[in-house]
Simulated assay, not measured.
Amino acid sequence: MKHRNHRRAAAAALMAASVISIASCGPAATDSGATNTRSASPSPTKPKDAFDGLTGPQISAKAKTALKDATSLRVTGDAPDGRGGTISIDMAMDTKGSCRGTIVQQHAGTIEMIKHRSTVFMKGDEKFWRASLAAGKKKPTARQADAFVEIVKGRWMKVDKKTARAMTRKDMCDLGTLADKLGDDSATDTTTTRGADVTRAGQALAVIYDRDGNEVTTIHVAKTGKPYPVEITHTGGTEPGSLKLTDFDKPVDTTPPPADQVIDTNKLRR
């Protein structure tokens, strides 16, 4: 199958990187029927199906195009971390490489991040920092680790320029990278099919299934407004996971933390 499982790869790549709902399910638009002059009761008409007559691959292509045209969004979801645990993400990101959010790793703690292009602030809990120190090339002594954790506890750290540049080169938090990873379905892709439409919180959604053996990727696509993919779920394989996409085209708040909450990195070099 051409370009199979790109959606699963997108979810896994974003969450496994660890250094990273449609615009909020509003009421679906409806049309009012014209009033019959012979009756006081209005005659409602059914809203036109935006995807009427379209196949699964055709709807998938529209969703991908809409996603590539979005300037920003918020990603929330969870997936296995490869070590028997889970990793959860709640991250707003845009096409300029900025993002803000939280990553929770079952085996490696929690980290909050604010990234405005090449400027990066990070705040981890004790579990995160101890796991990071243990994974480093130069292992600190127990005393050194305790001292480090005491300094950074509850504080933000401004990442040094070298590390920030490396993070930027990896396209971390880049919406364009996410859109590219969502796959390239063609109208002849017989593994992608359309299921029955659903309505959630008043929003009409088309449902698409992409099958690969016993593995299924399910995509919910908005039928009103822009055809954004609002949820991507992978089941049936060794890497189950689910992502919800919301807050499309809303500015990402990259306001830096207050100066008195930012650790002086010079203290860490003493």
Rank of each mutant, 00 (worst) to 15 (best):
N5K: 08
N5C: 00
A9S: 03
L14R: 01
A16K: 11
A17K: 02
V19H: 14
I20F: 12
S24C: 03
C25K: 10
G26Q: 04
P27D: 12
A28I: 03
A28H: 08
A29Q: 14
A34E: 15
T45G: 09
T45W: 11
K46V: 06
P47H: 15
D52K: 10
Q58W: 12
I59T: 06
A63E: 03
T65M: 10
L67W: 02
K68C: 02
L73S: 01
D81M: 12
G84W: 10
I87Q: 11
S88H: 04
C99R: 11
V104S: 09
Q105R: 15
Q105W: 10
Q106S: 15
M113P: 10
I114F: 11
K115S: 03
H116D: 14
H116M: 05
S118Y: 07
V120R: 13
F121A: 01
D125Q: 07
K127F: 08
W129A: 00
W129R: 00
R130D: 05
G136K: 10
K137H: 06
K139W: 02
P140C: 07
A142T: 08
V149E: 05
I151C: 01
A166K: 14
R169N: 07
M172Y: 15
L175S: 02
A187Y: 09
A196V: 12
A196Q: 11
D197P: 06
R200D: 10
A204Q: 11
A206C: 05
N214Q: 13
T217L: 13
I219G: 07
A222P: 06
T224W: 03
Y228H: 02
Y228L: 06
I232H: 03
T233G: 02
G237L: 14
S242A: 13
K250M: 03
P251H: 05
P251F: 12
D260G: 01
D264P: 05
